Amino acid sequence: MLNWILVDEIIKNGLKEDINNIDITTDTLIDDESKSAAQLLAKEEGVIAGLNVFERVFKILDQDVVVKFNVKDGDKVEKGTVIARIEGSTKAILKGERLALNLLQRMSGIATASRKYSDIVKNFPVRIVDTRKTTPGLRILEKYAVRAGGAYNHRFNLSESVLIKDNHIVAAGGIKEAIHKVKGRISHTVKVEIEVETIEGLKEAIEAGADMVLLDNMSLEEMKKAVEIGKGKVILEASGGITLDDLVDVAKTGVDIISVGALTHSVKAMDISLKFIS
């Protein structure tokens, strides 16, 4: 599900960025009455995400634009697939084309990466989750795309849950001190996660009452040891530069969650084009 109040704000800001006053090319070249049809084409294999966002760009420009989809979010498509047909005001289609494609391509790239990571560990009892390493202003869309691809979301923002990281620990005076202080000030409904870099840190976090522990940049052997100690006591999250090549080995350690910043921070946009056919 998407919060369309927030999505519309993203789209309108994008349109304002692209159309400062008028679209000088389209508005001087195309008549107001002109109608056109176009096809949305996949130029490579991938997982689609963001179709309703793509459509909404054109609806904001002209409510009468019609978009007919041949696939749905989460579908894997082959190169050459006709994803959709767009019909309506030529001006609206031309003005919205770039923004609509930028969002769809970005979201589909994230969904494609999320599917790839999730599929690799589908036979293990572990979840692939994203991080807050998202494009500023686009987090709601990028995290939706992660879900469309079959992975899961970590916290959406700093207000949603507690994650005590290394700098928090230093500022608070230690792992135990940080956990006790935050637990004394939050609601009983809020879970507390803390980042540790050593087995000793894990033991201290468990003793202090952490609900979840993020194992930061630990070796495979350290992760296995952490699972022996913490499984069933806390939720264990592996994090820190984990790649596709590392994924199965990390899953085999028995951790509950693997967080992957690369799902959003360095993903390649999917190649999708919009071509007029009339």
Score class of each variant (00 low, 15 high):
residue 3 N to I: 11
residue 7 V to K: 03
residue 7 V to E: 00
residue 7 V to C: 06
residue 15 L to R: 06
residue 23 D to W: 03
residue 29 L to N: 08
residue 31 D to V: 10
residue 33 E to Y: 13
residue 35 K to V: 11
residue 36 S to H: 04
residue 37 A to V: 09
residue 42 A to H: 05
residue 42 A to V: 03
residue 44 E to K: 09
residue 51 L to V: 03
residue 53 V to Y: 04
residue 57 V to H: 04
residue 69 F to A: 00
residue 71 V to Q: 05
residue 75 D to W: 10
residue 83 I to C: 04
residue 93 I to T: 00
residue 94 L to P: 00
residue 96 G to T: 02
residue 97 E to K: 14
residue 101 L to I: 08
residue 102 N to S: 11
residue 103 L to Q: 01
residue 106 R to P: 06
residue 108 S to M: 09
residue 108 S to C: 12
residue 113 A to R: 08
residue 116 K to Q: 14
residue 118 S to E: 01
residue 133 K to H: 11
residue 134 T to F: 00
residue 138 L to N: 06
residue 139 R to F: 14
residue 139 R to S: 12
residue 144 Y to A: 03
residue 144 Y to S: 02
residue 145 A to R: 03
residue 147 R to D: 02
residue 148 A to Y: 00
residue 153 N to P: 11
residue 160 E to P: 10
residue 168 H to W: 10
residue 168 H to E: 12
residue 170 V to W: 11
residue 177 E to D: 13
residue 180 H to R: 11
residue 188 H to V: 12
residue 190 V to L: 15
residue 191 K to L: 14
residue 195 E to K: 08
residue 200 E to S: 12
residue 202 L to C: 08
residue 206 I to G: 10
residue 209 G to F: 10
residue 210 A to V: 05
residue 210 A to I: 05
residue 213 V to K: 01
residue 216 D to R: 05
residue 217 N to T: 08
residue 221 E to N: 15
residue 225 K to T: 15
residue 228 E to N: 15
residue 232 G to I: 07
residue 232 G to H: 11
residue 234 V to W: 02
residue 235 I to Q: 09
residue 239 S to T: 08
residue 240 G to T: 06
residue 241 G to N: 14
residue 242 I to T: 07
residue 253 T to R: 07
residue 253 T to E: 02
residue 257 I to L: 11
residue 258 I to Y: 00
residue 259 S to L: 04
residue 262 A to I: 07
residue 266 S to M: 13
residue 267 V to W: 01
residue 268 K to E: 15
residue 272 I to Q: 00
residue 274 L to W: 01
residue 277 I to G: 05
